[in-house]
Amino acid sequence: MASAVASIWQGITYRGKDGHYAWMLHRAGGLGIVLFLFLHILDIFLVGVGEEIFEFFLFIYHSAPAKVFVMALLFGVFFHAFNGVRIILVDFWPEKFSNLKMQRTLFRIVVVMTLLFFIPTAIITVAPIFGVDLALSQLVGG
C-alpha cells in the first residue's frame, strides 16, 4: 500500500513538463474511460432487462449534473485519441518524431485538436439545459 502511494506520488511530482502532462492525462483519462465503459455496458445491457429500468438510467444521463460528467468523458476520449496518435508516431517513426522539438510541436497539435473537437461537442452537450437543441441531425432536419 505504501509502495503504491509512493509510486503514484512519484508519477505526479516528476517534473517533465509537456511530456509528463501528456502521460498523466493519458493515464488518468484512460482509467476514467474504462470505468465509464463498464458502466456503459451495464446500462445498455438493461435494454434487455426491461424498458422501464433502461429509461430510468437514461433519466440520470439526461440530467443537468450528468452532463458535467459527459463533458469530462468527451474531453478524456478526444485527448486520449489524439495523444494516442502522437504516441504511435513517436514509437513507430522515432527518427522523424522523437527529437525534443518535434515532440513539443506534436504535443501542441494534440492540445489544439482536442480543443477543436471538445469545444463544439461540449456546447452541443450543455445546450439542452438552456432549452436549445443543437444536435446536427436536428439542425439539418434529418
Binding site: 459527459v70 478526444f78 485519441a81 494516442g84 496518435v85 461537442t121 452541443i124 446536427l136
Partner: peptide, 22 residues
C-alpha cells in the same frame, strides 16, 4: 481512433444524447 470517436460523434454531435431512449 476511428470506431470509438465516430461512435461518440454520432451519439453526441449528430443525434444528441437527449434523443436517445429505449
Amino acid at each position: 481512433l476511428l470506431v470509438a470517436v465516430l461512435h461518440l460523434l454520432i451519439m453526441h454531435v449528430w443525434y444528441g444524447v437527449d434523443a436517445i431512449d429505449y
